[in-house]
Structure formats: structure tokens, C-alpha cells
Design a protein around this nucleic acid. Structure first.
Length: 492
DNA sequence: AAAAAAG
């Protein structure tokens, strides 16, 4: 199956070809002909299935004819989060480059006036989050009476976020005769009800069962004490020893925790960004952008990033906190192992999380291996030897100043060349209570810093190894690419 | 229990 026999216009096919895609995904193959036939569509699909292009491409074909009038958008797309809305806009920019199309993004956190000016000029595609959209309609700057096609994306998530009343209000402002495309990953009763209200004789398109996790994702759970500082310490170890780690999203349950973990990792020299809903919009966009471009290999995030965000090639997902809702787990780890790639999802599990973990395992229909203290047994030493775990365990237990064995350091020199500055300022650890004591891990052996995963983007020149670097709070085992290039002021 | 979105 190729894109060429789905009924898309020449322009759109050319744009698709230019991006290098040749074959449609199942959701695209099924949905596109219905959309072009101007049928209502009920799409049941997870993100990562190519869902966005399934409506963007036919919409571009439809929009080639006709022109927008001032304040009366021709099509409207509703998204639950600002990031998702921006992502859909990028799709229109990419595939619609050859068309003179006015695409407007109506999201909160950015200038109202600019948006209003854009609406005034007439837009073909309006992509919005509900709050800001209603704000514009209430102020009279926006009329939805000219909308020919309405897309409701991530409907089940809108439900979770309490947006359904807003969505219903918006739907009342859009002509009854419109075409509606409705996408959801799951079909809870409330969603079923609104599909009956919003859709007319919809064509049902369903791909990949909900509540499944990609087979290419390796999952593990690692036990931890309930203290937050223990979890942070464990996280750092997991980051260091992770195999083939290229980049990772670290999920926390609370915005506050996101900020704390972000700051903590920064202090320990990691190159890391943060993303949560209390950050201002430019900072949110910058963090996501840097992560996408690979400028920041690590991103600490709340569930704002759990669903739908299209970040290609996330190698690892860490659950710093186990999500309280099992379906959030599925969405979070769905950020990795996309498009058939492999991925790893590691959850830090405290005794308090046992019930949530059990619910997750029940939902996904498989048990998640417990790494226990054996986790690091799988870590390879770069020179091919493996030390006894007990020995590793002792490395830091004697006042935390154990000197690593020479042999094991060899082969890591290159990766260690970007040691965190903190390593040179051991005293800094002293005003951090969590770092005061020797950092003997609670559950098993001290892991070897496994650097075998480091891509070849480290410093090329060999560097002599340092003599001693294992002051408590010293975390110099970081692969170079995980390190911050710049250091924030000490004690900040 | 919390996050998200309008401030």
C-alpha cells in the first residue's frame, strides 16, 4: 500500500514524498479515504500510530479549494495540551509548505493580540486548546459558524482533564452540518456518549488495542525506599548504568517533584531540561525543543508530556514516581519504543507503589520484571570483565571514598572527560543533607558505571584518568553526553 | 493524588 492511491492531491503527495515517507500507517490507510469522502470518522488509535497525519493530509487536500474569511476559520482542531496543538501546527507547516495556507495556533500562555490579528486575516486551519479558544469566541474575535471540518483529538484525555463541557460548548458553536473527525485512544462510557452526540453515522477506524505496551519496550521495576532523596540517588545510578541510553524522559507525578528532580540532576551535573504545566510557555517550548533536537538528552516531565508528544527516538523512559493511574503508565512508556524501535522503561517503585504496580501489570497483561539488587549484574564493563557485585558494593561504603580499581576505569576515560564540576568541588555535597552520608545503595550492589552505551559524540581526544574522584556527592561517572556544558551557580 | 487549561 502506498500513499498514492488514497485519493490525496498531487501537492500533498509531493509533500509527503519530500519528507521521505512512502507507506501509510494502518490508521492513515483506513482514515484518509473516509475523510476525503467527507464522512465523519471515529478513530480509535494511540498516539504514535500516525494519527496526526491521518487527518492533516486529507485536510490539506480538502483545503486546496476555497478561501478563508476574516474571523471565520474553515477548519478547527481541538487538542488537550498546548504542546500537542503546537505539534499539529508543525505538521501543517511541514506538509502544507507548498500551499498558501493560513494556520493559526490558539493556545494559552502566549500573546492574545497576535492571535487575534491572525484571526482577523482569515485562517484555513485553527488549532486550539479549549480555554483560549473560548476566550476568543467570548470576546467576539472568532466566529465558528464557518467551520466545515472539526477535529477532536485525544478525546479521552480531554475527558480526563475535564474539558468535555468546554468541548460541548464549542461543538454548539460549530455548524451542525460540519464534518467531524473524532480521535480517542480508549472508549469509556462518557466518550461513547459524546461520540453519539457529536458524530453522524461515523466510519469507525481502529488500530492497535488500547492498554497495550509495545513489544519492543523492555520494562523493569526497581525497588526503592520511599524517601525522595533515595529515589533521586537511585535515579542517578540508573541513568549512569543504563544501557544504550541516548536520551530519556523522567516522569514525576507532581509538578513540584519535577522541579526538584530537575534541579537535583542539574546539581549533579546532568544535562537536563524540565517540562510541566506551571512553567511559562516559552520555557515549555524551549525545553521540548531542545530535547527534540538532542541538545538536552534528559527531560524531567509531568504527565503533560505523557501522551501524544511525538519525540522520535526516546531510548529510555524512567518513572521517578509510579503513576497512580495504570493508563498513564501505558502512555508514559509509549514515549519510547515508537515506530518499531527498541526502548527501555524503568520504574522506581517504593513500598507504597505496590498496589499501583499491580494495577499496571493487570492492565498491560504482563508482569514487569523486578530488577532487585541484580539490576546491575547486567551492566557490562567496557573492557569485558565484570567485577563481583560485592566488590562494587564496597566501593563507596567506606566513607564513600573508595578508590575505584584502575582496570575498571580504563576504557571510560573518554566518556569521563566531561566530569561534572561538582566532582572538583567535593565540599558542595555537604550542604545537601541527602548527600551527606556514604551513598551505599539500599538495594544491592554498587553498579559499575556502564559507559558502553555512550555514543561516539564524546570528546575525541583521550584523557588521562583522574586519580580519585569518589567523594560523596561526586558523580563523575556520567557519560559525557549527559553532562551539562554549563554550570549553574553553586548552591543555587 | 495530580496534572492539564483561561486568567
Amino acid at each position: 500500500m502506498s500513499f498514492s492511491n488514497l485519493g490525496l492531491s498531487e501537492k500533498v503527495l509531493a509533500a509527503v514524498a519530500a519528507t521521505g515517507y512512502t507507506n501509510p500507517t494502518p490508521i492513515q490507510e483506513q482514515a484518509i479515504p473516509h475523510v476525503l469522502a467527507r464522512k465523519d470518522v471515529l478513530g480509535i488509535a494511540q498516539t504514535g500510530t500516525g494519527k496526526t497525519a491521518a487527518f492533516v493530509l486529507p485536510m490539506l487536500t480538502i483545503l486546496e479549494k476555497g478561501r478563508a474569511r476574516a474571523r471565520m476559520p474553515r477548519t478547527l482542531i481541538l487538542e488537550p495540551t498546548r504542546e500537542l496543538a503546537a505539534q499539529v501546527k508543525e505538521n501543517f507547516d511541514r506538509y502544507g509548505a507548498g500551499q498558501k495556507l493560513n494556520v493559526a495556533l490558539l493556545i494559552g500562555g502566549v500573546s492574545f493580540g497576535d492571535q487575534d490579528a491572525k484571526l482577523m486575516r482569515g485562517v484555513d486551519v485553527l488549532i486550539a486548546t479549549p480555554g483560549r479558544l473560548l476566550d476568543h469566541t467570548e470576546r467576539g474575535g472568532l466566529l465558528l459558524t464557518g467551520v466545515e471540518l472539526l477535529v477532536i483529538d485525544e478525546a479521552d484525555r480531554m475527558l480526563d482533564m475535564g474539558f468535555i463541557p468546554d468541548i460541548e460548548r464549542i461543538c454548539k458553536l460549530v455548524p451542525f452540518t460540519r464534518q467531524t473527525l473524532f480521535f480517542t485512544a480508549t472508549m469509556p462510557p462518557e466518550i461513547r456518549r459524546i461520540t453519539e452526540a457529536f458524530l453522524h453515522n461515523p466510519q469507525k477506524v481502529e488500530v492497535s488495542r488500547p492498554a497495550t505496551t509495545a513489544v519492543t519496550v523492555t520494562q523493569a521495576q526497581v525497588p526503592a525506599g520511599r524517601e525522595a532523596h533515595e529515589k533521586r540517588e537511585l535515579l542517578r545510578r540508573l541513568l549512569r548504568e543504563a544501557k544504550d541510553l541516548k536520551n530519556a524522559i523522567i516522569f514525576c507525578n507532581r509538578k513540584r517533584e519535577v522541579a526538584i528532580v530537575h534541579k537535583s540532576l542539574q546539581k549533579h551535573g546532568f544535562s537536563v531540561g524540565a517540562l510541566h504545566g506551571d512553567m511559562d510557555q516559552p520555557a515549555r517550548m524551549a525545553a521540548l525543543d531542545q530535547f527534540r533536537k538532542g541538545e538536552l538528552p534528559l527531560l524531567v516531565a509531568s504527565d503533560v508530556a505523557a501522551r501524544g508528544l511525538d519525540i522520535p527516538e526516546v531510548s529510555h523512559v524512567f518513572n521517578f514516581d509510579v503513576p497512580h493511574h495504570a493508563d498513564d503508565y501505558v502512555h508514559r512508556i509509549g514515549r519510547t519504543g515508537r515506530a518499531g524501535r527498541t526502548g527501555t522503561a524503568i520504574s522506581i517503585v517504593t513500598p507504597l507503589d505496590q498496589k499501583s504496580m499491580a494495577a499496571i501489570e493487570k492492565l498491560i497483561g504482563q508482569s514487569i520484571p523486578r530488577a532487585e539488587g541484580d539490576y546491575e549484574v547486567h551492566a557490562e564493563v567496557a573492557d569485558g570483565t565484570e567485577r563481583p557485585r560485592e566488590q562494587r558494593g564496597r566501593e563507596r561504603s567506606r566513607g564513600g571514598r573508595g578508590k575505584p580499581q584502575r582496570g575498571e576505569r580504563r576504557g571510560h576515560d573518554r566518556e569521563r572527560s566531561h566530569e561534572p564540576r561538582e566532582a572538583r568541588q567535593p565540599s558542595e555535597a555537604r550542604h545537601r543533607p541527602e548527600e551527606k552520608r556514604g551513598s551505599e545503595p539500599r538495594h544491592g550492589a554498587r553498579p559499575h558505571a556502564n559507559a558502553s552505551h555512550v555514543p561516539s559524540i564524546g570528546r575525541p581526544e583521550p584523557r588521562r584518568q583522574r586519580e580519585v574522584d569518589t567523594e560523596p556527592g561526586d558523580h563523575s561517572h556520567l557519560p559525557a553526553f549527559l553532562l551539562r556544558p554549563v554550570r549553574s551557580p553553586a548552591g543555587a
